[in-house]
Design a protein around this nucleic acid. Structure first.
Lengths: 216, 216
DNA sequence: ATCGATTAAGTACGACCGTTCGTGCCGAGA
DNA sequence: TCTCGGCACGAACGGTCGTACTTAATCGAT
């Protein structure tokens, strides 16, 4: 009865506390990385923050780069939970686009990470450091922009947005507003950039929606 | 006869090669800081890059923080030369606004710094590290946004832009396009984000110019 | 020509970096 | 119950960090 596992199964299951520590480590790592950078964050300080020894923490990952990659994945899950998930149930592409932008602004304003959006913060640190870490960050970025682009195209197919508009251009402008909102919010911790981004996106979508003649 | 100095004046002028070294150090420091960060850049590597000893370089500044502050000032001068100066002779606020945006995009595309705009790169690193370095970066940022804002207000006074528009909102949207153009250019090294930003800004300015009725 | 100030290098320091190793603890499968 | 492997620990490694002292070379004005 107990030997139902076929194929390559791990003989001994991992202990539960190991996974719990790993989660706690990565959660703290993602938070600290937005302040000190994913390279700037040292294993010693991370260990101290989670209350365990440097070597004990290190054993979970084997190298700093593996820790960084795992941290990115953990941050990705947090991002999906806060931004992507609430938008996934939208009935239309137009509504999904709105929810994605709104979800991102909420995610910033809610201080999910102390240093603002994890990916904005960490990618700007690693953009000139080639390697697996940068690659994974770029892959995330591509996915995220793809989500915006897809929602816009859907909205165009629905007739909610002017089909004559370039989806990539609208994506750029929306992402620009979100990106700057994040940067300014981290510096000033005021809701003003959030509001400005909201307004900019609203205006841009309105302009793409009410364009009765395909002018370009 | 030669003792004209009253009060506390430096009796002996500084040597010329000292100033030359200092300039070379700061130029390289500004470049490297856009790649490795202004904290991530170490004195040892900087010394190696300029071809002098760690202690010899260090003696110029006395502390890393002083080096960082001097680096920011040096980068500021480069920024002024590339972006602010070409726009300063504009006959109108409207034209100056256009030249500021264009100058910034050129400054990015010309790879003045290997890691993109110095201030975008370094401020995102220091935004959560309070202290004199962050303060000076924020001061620069305030000045820069003030330049955009002033040009917009002038353009409104000239009648080139709709006086009903909120200057701070237009500033935000233009800065957003420039900011994202820089970030994406560093990652992809393609002119596409530059073009998208140009188009976004052009459209935004056109929208603010052709608004015949003060709607908001 | 000389003297003093300036520039740079040499050396050393304590702290921290990422990493390795040996050693126990403890919980779960037998 | 016994055992064994996941888990965490402390100590230590070589290396690099920022910084402090000391010393040699070199220019400028007397």
């Amino acid at each position: 009865m107990t030997e139902e596992r076929s194929g390559a199964a791990k003989v001994r299951a991992t202990r539960s506390d190991g996974a719990r520590s790993r989660t706690a480590i990565l959660s703290e790592a993602a938070r600290l990385a937005t302040m000190d950078g994913i390279d700037g964050l040292s294993i010693g300080r991370l260990a101290q923050a989670v209350g365990m020894s440097k070597s004990g923490l290190f054993a979970h990952f084997g190298s700093k780069e593996e820790l960084q990659l795992a941290t990115i994945d953990a941050a990705n899950e947090i991002f999906e939970r806060h931004v992507l998930a609430p938008a996934s149930a939208a009935p239309t592409g137009f509504e999904r686009l709105r929810l994605l932008a709104e979800g991102y602004l909420d995610y910033i304003e809610a201080d999910v990470f102390p240093g603002g959006c994890f990916f904005a913060s960490v990618l700007s640190e690693m953009d000139t450091h080639p390697g697996p870490v940068r690659d994974r960050l770029v892959r995330f970025l591509t996915d995220w922009l793809g989500q915006l682009d897809a929602a816009i195209r859907e909205a165009q197919a629905e007739g909610a947005l002017d089909a004559g508009e370039d989806p990539a251009q609208i994506t750029f402008e929306i992402e620009a507003a979100l990106f700057l909102a994040n940067a300014q919010f981290v510096v000033a911790h005021t809701s003003e950039p959030i509001e400005r981004a909201r307004r900019a996106i609203m205006l841009r979508i309105a302009a793409a929606a009410t364009s009765t003649e395909g002018s370009a």
